[in-house]
Design a protein around this nucleic acid. Structure first.
Lengths: 153, 153
DNA sequence: TATTGTTATACTCTATAACTATA
DNA sequence: TATAGTTATAGAGTATAACAATA
């Protein structure tokens, strides 16, 4: 019956801890939102960048998403097998693929983008517009500060 | 030579995407900070909550950290084997363990807390105090809004 | 030599089901 | 029956090394 309250004051003052908890809670929910379309957060992000930059290469996409090239391969394999994207050979460089959405891929992306936008609005419904934008800006600055911390290893 | 710039404007407006990128960049760096002490972000968090709530049980710790009980076991096994924590039997309930830090555990935790605090300050060095606190508060509200979204499944 | 995409592999985090020993 | 801790297992994300084809 001892319903002792557990405190975590010392952790709560760390931005990194707040970041982890918020991300964990959001990640599962975004994936649940995208599941009906057969997408995950990562595959949706890939579709978005391809939609915005048709003809880009896999290594460029990996760079834009800040993931390693090998991790992108299975994501693109899946999207390609389902007919959502196409890997076109690049005539000028036969090692590379130019990525673009198919018509189906474009439609699925539009549906997914709407779903994600609605989810994002719901997720940040406790914040004002200003607070929401300030948070996104702060997150970007944290990301930048962190990645440029190790300039040359 | 085509150093084409890849845009991700459509993704950048999603708070969830900013969250993911910031967390990914931070997670690796926190773990690198804690590596010399043989800790990860999760084991450090466990130490912090045990330090703050000596005698708490594993299920209470799991609840405080928002992780499932099974995932905590190996973390505590490791901390116990290294002599940083103790699992005391609870006389009133012989199923449960009361967790506490050893003297060594207390020392390692203090070192780790200093390192994490320094890292956190560096990570948020691009933010003013007000911005930093506002961001942490916003993250907590997002976490809360998201977890209470599914009240009973 | 360097780069593109690929394969293989490993590690971490998270989640669920089922077990044991207690209650 | 219900709970505390455990075991086993699975899925997803991320990372590195090494390879073939091409530059």
């Amino acid at each position: 019956m001892e319903k002792q309250v557990i405190s975590d004051t010392s952790l709560r003052c760390f931005a990194g801890y707040a970041l982890k908890r918020a991300f964990n809670s959001v990640q599962a929910d975004v994936n649940a939102t995208l599941a009906p379309l057969g997408l995950r957060m990562l595959s949706f992000s890939a579709l978005a960048v391809i939609a915005e930059n048709p003809g880009l290469r896999q290594s460029q996409l990996a760079g834009a998403l800040s993931i390693e090239r090998p991790n992108l391969v299975i994501v693109l394999d899946d999207l390609e097998q389902r007919g959502l994207i196409v890997r076109d050979r690049v005539p000028s460089d036969r090692r590379a693929y130019a990525l673009r959405l198919t018509d189906d891929g474009g439609r699925v992306y539009q549906l997914a983008a709407s779903a994600v936008q609605a989810h994002d609005a719901r997720m940040t419904s406790g914040l004002s517009k200003v607070e929401r934008l300030a948070m996104i800006d702060a997150l970007r600055r944290i990301e930048t500060a962190n990645t440029k911390e190790q300039p040359d290893g």
